[in-house]
Computed example of a mutant assay.
Amino acid sequence: MRIDVVASASEIRTEDVIHRSAVVIDVFRTTSTIVTALAQGAICITPVETVPKAKQLGLEGMFLGGERFCKKIAGFDAGNSPLEYTKELVEGRKGIMTTTSGTRALIKAGKASYIFTAAFLNVKACAEVLAEVDLDIAILCAGQQDRLTMEDSLCAGMLIHYIKQSAVQPVRLNDLGLVVHQAYLGCEADLRNKLKESNEAKRLTKQGHEKDVDYCLTENAFTLVPVMEDHFLVPWKAKEKKII
């Protein structure tokens, strides 16, 4: 099994994902929010790239979520804080989400055979699904301002660690995959404290989102794994493999 890690949404190319399972990671906060919203009972979430597109697609009864530069978008039901996506807001409803980096990465992964989302909240479950699907994998870090972030890279390293435990085939990594896996192993014993020192964690904390940081660094709180089906993110259910 080949696993390639891509550093940021801007670097994702079609050749990185085609005929592969793609998994998008945006720990702070898009993929953490998507996992949470579906776990709280949302029917599905449609990721879109722009605010006008989100407003255009929004229908009565749907919730709109998203941010630009960490701020909730005017007129939307929620921002990009997973803690805003409560049962009261999302249960039994469809949603639309647009964020600065995370939803862009999901859209750019569109040619993959499968598109999943991972965060620390569901990383082990995601690794198990990826091993079950048994295709080569592209781990797509959303990044921040077109740069790899500490939290996405260490989550990617943890994901690789769990995949190596679950996969039947030997796992081969690209250079960035080797780096993030070794970085994770080096931080494993004190991971949460290391991540709280990251630039993005400090920035969110300064903006008053310390509870989001704590929540997004929680490991394996959910077994739910979001997967893209016909442009909708829904909970994964085991199925027959696609014919590539």
Rank of each mutant, 00 (worst) to 15 (best):
V6H: 00
V6N: 05
V6C: 11
A7M: 10
S8L: 03
A9R: 04
S10K: 13
I12A: 11
R13P: 12
R20V: 02
S21M: 04
A22Q: 06
R29K: 11
R29G: 11
T30H: 05
T30D: 07
T30G: 02
S32P: 07
V35I: 03
L38S: 00
L38E: 09
L38Y: 02
Q40W: 07
Q40F: 08
G41I: 07
I43A: 07
C44E: 15
C44Q: 12
I45V: 05
P47Y: 06
E49V: 07
T50W: 01
P52D: 00
A54T: 06
L57H: 02
L57P: 09
G58K: 13
L59P: 12
E60Y: 07
G61E: 12
G61W: 07
L64Q: 01
L64N: 03
G66N: 06
G66Y: 06
G66I: 03
K71L: 09
A74P: 01
G75L: 01
D77Q: 15
A78W: 05
N80P: 02
L83Y: 03
T86Q: 06
T86L: 06
K87R: 14
V90H: 08
E91T: 08
G92M: 01
R93F: 05
M97K: 05
S101D: 12
G102H: 04
T103F: 11
T103L: 08
T103V: 09
R104V: 11
R104H: 03
R104Y: 08
A105H: 13
I107A: 04
G110Y: 01
S113W: 01
S113Y: 00
F116P: 02
A118Q: 01
K124I: 12
C126V: 15
C126H: 08
V133E: 10
I137F: 13
C141R: 11
Q144K: 04
L154I: 00
C155Q: 09
C155D: 14
A156H: 06
M158I: 06
H161S: 14
Y162P: 05
K164H: 10
V168G: 15
Q169G: 11
Q169K: 14
V171R: 03
R172C: 12
N174F: 05
D175P: 10
D175N: 12
D175C: 11
L176T: 13
G177D: 04
G177L: 08
G177H: 06
A183T: 06
Y184C: 05
L185E: 09
R192K: 13
K194S: 11
K194W: 12
K194I: 15
E197S: 08
E200L: 13
R203V: 06
L204F: 01
K206F: 14
K206R: 15
Q207R: 15
Q207F: 14
E210F: 10
K211F: 10
D212S: 02
V213Q: 01
D214W: 01
Y215T: 09
Y215F: 15
C216G: 09
L217G: 08
N220H: 12
F222V: 14
V225C: 10
V227Y: 12
E229D: 09
D230E: 15
H231A: 13
H231F: 14
F232L: 14
L233F: 02
K239I: 03
K241G: 11
K242V: 03
